[in-house]
Design a protein around this nucleic acid. Structure first.
Lengths: 217, 217
DNA sequence: GACACCTCCATTGGATCCATTAATGCTTGC
DNA sequence: GCAAGCATTAATGGATCCAATGGAGGTGTC
């Protein structure tokens, strides 16, 4: 076994987060402290602390004297998450955009090339997220970024389900929005960039609302 | 000794939060697990979990293998918190306003009477917060409310310092804004209500920016 | 005299053990 | 046959003990 780097509770939290985001632990799944502890070769204490960490990120729901479950959302909560993103991500963009270099923006176009070339849903999710965070790369607003990151985390599972349905036949819309966003950044037109981003998130929210069946689980 | 209600770690977290929000624990203060545990007649374990809980609420800052401190902000972070509030609280108002009853709105006017009558800073902070949450009372958006609540918590200390400076000579502005907000809600003009709220927060942010000396501690 | 390294102590992180709670299944009575 | 209550069991919450880390202070060397 490899050398455990860093604090155990953080390692456990990272591992658990990875499993949830990758879809290997579905929303609603119960998490038993003993099982995880044994599986990760540690005691239950770091697991308990890891669950607290992930609860604060919204990925896990705790009930006192009862247990822990992977957080699940209903359609209403998910829609609200998107409304929050609509308001916060343009602000985060505003914090980052003035500091982006030409190279930063070139990298975005390359990422978008990759997105347009990819056919696998999991790969799309990774690249799409990477592109958005390339836009925010130069922010100096840790607290705001943490809130936004959390929203991406908690909606990841539903984004996956939605992407499975939609990205093949309507993928060009996302591509168009991404290219418009990148171009506005290149032109240093930060107001337009913020507007495009807001529309991009808003359109996704509206599309998502057309598929309530994604939440009947 | 009285019967301990609920889970110990939550009790410790509540007590610690209360101390920080009441200003009895200043930003930057170090928190030693042993001391708190002894003082609250419990072991270090609930204290550790309480620190995790409060870290997730942004009230304490943890450093691995080092310790815990009451979180402190610089002017930039505080200003950003207000910008986030400017965007999120109107949204939270929108979620609540349509469901507010006449009695709810009457209660707001009564709260505002109390605010205009009060001369003590601590009392003002309590009543002001209570009034704002009276506006949001009928929301069904727990996640959004949690984010906003957290922002109020983390900026509480700076709001106190600012209030000490400003509320006596310019208190009438806050009163005017509050009354306008309540009236818009009474008229069921939710768009205006959201705008007034946004302006109210924005004006406070701009005022606060004039007092950088509040952050040189 | 100044800087670097080493040792010691205070404090946090982790493991094991015990208490407590809550849920489930069985039994009993109606 | 069904419902309610009790008992059993499994999993969480808490306390104590031990290990590891990081900072501070002193000493030795350049």
């Amino acid at each position: 076994m490899s050398v455990p780097a860093g604090v155990a509770s953080q390692r456990v939290a990272d591992e658990l987060r990875e499993r949830i985001l990758a879809g290997r632990l579905a929303p609603g799944t119960r998490i038993i402290q003993d099982e995880l502890a044994e599986e990760l070769n540690t005691s239950r204490l770091p697991v308990r602390e890891a669950l607290r960490i992930l609860e604060s990120r919204g990925l896990v729901t705790l009930r006192a004297n009862s247990g822990a479950w992977v957080t699940s959302m209903d359609a209403r909560e998910c829609e609200l998450s998107y409304k929050i993103r609509e308001r916060l991500e343009p602000l985060l963009l505003t914090e980052s955009a003035p500091r982006l270099s030409e190279e930063d923006i070139d990298a975005m176009d390359e990422l978008q090339d990759g997105i347009e070339a990819c056919t696998d849903v999991e790969e799309f999710l990774v690249l799409d997220r990477r592109l958005h965070w390339a836009v925010y790369r130069r922010h100096e607003a840790e607290d705001l970024a943490a809130i936004v990151n959390r929203l991406w985390d908690t909606t990841q599972h539903y984004r996956r389900a939605f992407t499975r349905l939609a990205f093949e036949r309507r993928g060009w819309i996302i591509g168009a929005e991404h290219r418009l966003l990148i171009q506005a950044l290149r032109d240093r037109d930060h107001t337009s960039a913020a507007r495009v981003l807001e529309l991009h998130i808003r359109r996704t929210r509206v599309e998502l609302a057309k598929h309530p069946e994604l939440f009947t689980g």
